[in-house]
Design a protein around this nucleic acid. Sequence first.
DNA 1: ATAAATCGCTAACGCGTGTTAGCCAAAAAA
DNA 2: TTTTTTGGCTAACACGCGTTAGCGATTTAT
Lengths: 196, 196
Amino acid sequence: MARIKTDKNISRKDVIVTKAASLFREKGFKAASMRDLAEAVGVEAASLYNHIKSKTELLHELCFSVANRFLQKIDEVEAEKIPAIEKIEKLLRFHINEMIHHYEEVYVSDREWKHLADPYLSNFQNQRRIYRKRFAAIIESGIRNHEVKKIDAPTAVLIMLHAISGIESWHRSTQKISAAELEENMVTILVGGLTQ
Amino acid sequence: MARIKTDKNISRKDVIVTKAASLFREKGFKAASMRDLAEAVGVEAASLYNHIKSKTELLHELCFSVANRFLQKIDEVEAEKIPAIEKIEKLLRFHINEMIHHYEEVYVSDREWKHLADPYLSNFQNQRRIYRKRFAAIIESGIRNHEVKKIDAPTAVLIMLHAISGIESWHRSTQKISAAELEENMVTILVGGLTQ
DNA sequence: ATAAATCGCTAACGCGTGTTAGCCAAAAAA
DNA sequence: TTTTTTGGCTAACACGCGTTAGCGATTTAT
């Protein structure tokens, strides 16, 4: 009998969720089996159900914990009294750092949310839509103030969010530049693309 | 008995491959079943096997037909005697148009190649790696000629390719700007981000 | 020390999967 | 018109999936 190891303040469920993120990222949600996950955790598949309700629950937890972090950040940024372009840069840097430091979770939330079931699915899609609208609104205010050049704001959002998800390639590449360099390069190119 | 309808020069296999692209895009490769595909084609699942070898073969065909189009294009662009920045813009516009007009195929090739099996998998990954290096080399030559600002070329490639895959969101959005506007906005932002 | 809760295990379930075998009608070739 | 090929069909296969039941050992609470 091989109990799941836990440190203080890390529940066995947390261990499972974390391993699930890694597995879902690697294989995709559908292709990752509970038996795979069990093996990664060091336990039999049935034992997982002492800690979780279902496979889908794992996906909920991952998707919404990520979504909540982003919503909280945009609340914070919107409230600040700084130029729009600085708000954009702050959000951008936040996204980049989330993708660098919470890679697996963020990636899974980004790519695998399709496999959520209603009502979680509609809920997640809504949150996403609203987030993008709020982001676009910041860009639009930047355009009105002539901080940002005249472009279609939703398209700009789409470019930025997807560009950031490209950090996936950075993670998997063998000859990585440093995280700090990556951040600076991305900000240079993306903020540069909006201004000037 | 409901035969698969075909026009001239479109084989029954082509019909299946096209429907497969649509289905794989919508549900993901693993989650899309052969019975789903059969229904979309208007036939029983077993009947599909009169035209194809396996489910994975469908993925091969999609992935490599897309990859070949991109490789052919970069061959063509590299051979031209024009400034690097114009080469970059040409590739960019090609990517954008591919994503606009062959959405399902390109999307599937981009997101579902993980489910290829060796030797196709390694093959595909190699082609991808080489393509990106060639793209980065063009950017680097642009930097040497001072057409492009000093940035990490692989990072620039990563941003551009992933930004383009964001056209997925455009396809699914209800209030679309026109394809032409989308293209111009993307080029403005991305080329603008490299130059300035 | 005793009781209760926690957390592993094995066995098994029902179901959906990709795929094959074998048959027969329609279409194409002779 | 006859023969051959094509392309449907039904039935079935072996397998992997998520999940549950029920048991016993270890840990925690009393």
